[in-house]
Design a protein around this nucleic acid. Structure first.
Lengths: 165, 165
DNA sequence: GACAGATATATCGACTTGATATATAATGCC
DNA sequence: GGCATTATATATCAAGTCGATATATCTGTC
C-alpha cells in the first residue's frame, strides 16, 4: 500500500522519486520501510492510469522526473481514504487533508473495528483460561488486549476533539 | 518468516500441510495470515535442506504428506530463536520451548530494544513540538509512545516472573 | 446415491523487500 | 585547482509472500 502515501504527498506538491522516498521514510518510517522496488514501479503504474503525470526536469543536479497528481489521482486518493481495507496508520497520516465529516466517519469506523476486536480477544482469553495454555501465550493475548484498550481510548479522545471544532 | 512457526510446531509433533495451516492460523492469527503459497514452498525448502522429512501417509482421508523435524531442523529453530532480527511475536509463541536462561536473554534483549525506540520517539516528539506538525501526526506519535510504554512494563513483568521461577 | 461441506495439496499472478548497479552533481579539503 | 567522498537519482533483480483459485478426495446425511 505505497499508493496512498504517494498520492497523499503529491497532493501537497510535485515531487520526483528520490525526494518522495525521503519524505515517505520520514512519515511512514515508524511502521514500515520504503523500497525503490515498490516506489518506482508504482509511479509508473500511476502514470499509466493517468493518476499522476511525470515530466523531466533538468535544471540542476541529476535528471529528475517530477511527478504531479492529476484530478483522477485526487479521486483515487479519496477512494483509498474511504476504503476500510486500507491500513489505518496510512489513512491517519493524511486525515488532515479530508473533510471534517469524512474525518469523523473514518475515526468512528476504526474505533468500532477495534471495539469488535477487543471483544473477540476477551472471548479468546476466557476460552484460554479453561484449557491449560502456557503463560507466555496468555501474556501475548494480554498484551494485544492492552494495546486495543489504549487504542480505543486514544481514538475516542480524537473523536471528541473533532466534535469540539 | 513462516519458517520459525513451522519448525516450532513440528518440534511438538509431526504434522501434514493442511493441519499445519490450521494450527498456524490459530496461533499466529493475531498478527498475520498464513497462505498456502508460502506454506507449501517452505515445507519443500525445509525438506531440501534436510531440516524436515516428509512421508506419505495414506491411512485415511486424502493423501497426506506428514512432516517430521530433524535434528538439523531443531538446530535451525534454535538459531532463529536467537536471531535478533526474527519477529519478537513469533519467538514469543515458542519461548516456552527454550531454556530458561535463553528465555531471559531473549526477553531482556527485546526490552532494551523497546527502551531504545521509546527514547527515539520521545526525541521525535520534542522536535515536532518546535515545528508546526498537524495534530493528527502528533497523535500518531503519542500512540506509538503509549504502546511502547505498555510493552516495556509488560515485558518487565514477564522478566521478573522468570526470576522468581 | 446425490449433494454439501470439510479435507488436502498445488500453483499462479501480482506485489514487496532488500540488495545492488549505474550514473551524475555537490561538497569538503588540502 | 584538483581529487576523493558523499549525496542525489533512477533502475532492476532474485527471493519471498499474499490472495485467489484449481483440483482432487473424503465424510456426513437425507
Amino acid at each position: 500500500m505505497i499508493e496512498l502515501p504517494i498520492l497523499g504527498l503529491l497532493k501537497e506538491m510535485p515531487l520526483h522519486g528520490y525526494e518522495l522516498k525521503r519524505r515517505l521514510e520520514n512519515i511512514v518510517g515508524y511502521f514500515g520501510t520504503v523500497s525503490y522496488g515498490s516506489l518506482y514501479p508504482m509511479l509508473r503504474k500511476l502514470e499509466e492510469r493517468g493518476q499522476v503525470t511525470g515530466s523531466v526536469n533538468e535544471q540542476t543536479g541529476p535528471s529528475r522526473i517530477v511527478y504531479r497528481i492529476t484530478s483522477e489521482g485526487e479521486a483515487r486518493f479519496s477512494e483509498l481514504m474511504q476504503d476500510p481495507g486500507a491500513p489505518f496508520n496510512l489513512k491517519m497520516l493524511f486525515i488532515h487533508s479530508i473533510q471534517p465529516s469524512e474525518r469523523v466517519r473514518l475515526l468512528e469506523q476504526q474505533r468500532d473495528e477495534w471495539v469488535r476486536k477487543l471483544e473477540e480477544r476477551r472471548g479468546d482469553q476466557e476460552r484460554i483460561a479453561e484449557r491449560n495454555i502456557h503463560r507466555y501465550r496468555a501474556a501475548l493475548l494480554t498484551r494485544a488486549i492492552e494495546h486495543l484498550e489504549r487504542d480505543i481510548a486514544w481514538i475516542q479522545n480524537l473523536i471528541e476533539g473533532e466534535d469540539q471544532l
